[in-house]
Nucleic acid binder design. Sequence first.
DNA 1: ACCTATTAGTTATCATGCTAACAATAGGAG
DNA 2: CTCCTATTGTTAGCATGATAACTAATAGGT
Lengths: 148, 148
Amino acid sequence: MFFLKDLPTRQMIEGYVTTLEAGDEDAIETALIMMRDASVLVRRIDQYFQAENLSQLRFLIMIVIDREPERPWLYQGEVAERLDVSKPVLTRAVQSLMDAGLLTVSPDEDDKRWKRLSLSPDGTKRLHALLPGYFQLISDFMADRKGG
Amino acid sequence: MFFLKDLPTRQMIEGYVTTLEAGDEDAIETALIMMRDASVLVRRIDQYFQAENLSQLRFLIMIVIDREPERPWLYQGEVAERLDVSKPVLTRAVQSLMDAGLLTVSPDEDDKRWKRLSLSPDGTKRLHALLPGYFQLISDFMADRKGG
DNA sequence: ACCTATTAGTTATCATGCTAACAATAGGAG
DNA sequence: CTCCTATTGTTAGCATGATAACTAATAGGT
């Protein structure tokens, strides 16, 4: 996360650092704005999901499973490939989705190390119910950002 | 933070959500890219600071104090105003900076609730030593991002 | 002077990210 | 078959974000 409300001005960056090449100050300013905006947006998204006893990560897990409708399940490792989180975090999130009844987990018969993950009917319903609000929230945020 | 490696395509967003106005899909895609980029950058920055037994938050606390050189100290509440974190998080970060000898803390004489925060000579030295690498890291990230 | 409300900061507890170390399974060489 | 290695996922423990409830100090009205 990034928490600085008043970003460093370009002059300040120049004052602090003399080894930068020309134009770098603009890129840095863009990056700082990006981190701050992303922090605020992520916080809002997390609030959105928290009210539903979910999190952005658990939601994204459901998305990657749902968006391959021709597959009856994804292996946990495949989900991991599509996301970018550590293994223990995935373990914990999958467990909590299962506890909530949104995800169905079964061991693979050929290789008992692998876990098959599918959305339960409830999970699919829940995901699709959350999607409009999710995208609307993001869309509104971006509109505010341009405006204000 | 945001972890999806393959972002939803515009078609997919349209397929999921029918209530959006025209043009919203682009804004959403921009937002998803922004969150993913910011996540990656924040992770790199945290690694940079972790190697120094610091964190981005502790670093930002030092910056907001350092960038008002005409003031002999900032009150903890003033630091809180300039950042966007909860009070307990600030308490903990200030404590850890003090333990590390980078921050000098003293109570105000007029109002004993207030805490005066100043950088120690070591803190100032440390901050200025970290700044070039910090801005360079950000600058490099932005260059990579455009290129690749 | 005293009672109450407000303010600054802390403590307790939870959520969720991480790495390191582990168990269980599978596969291949001898 | 047995042993060594690789792979999948889990457990344990840490860091750092949050909120709720607390303490201590101050301010203000009676």
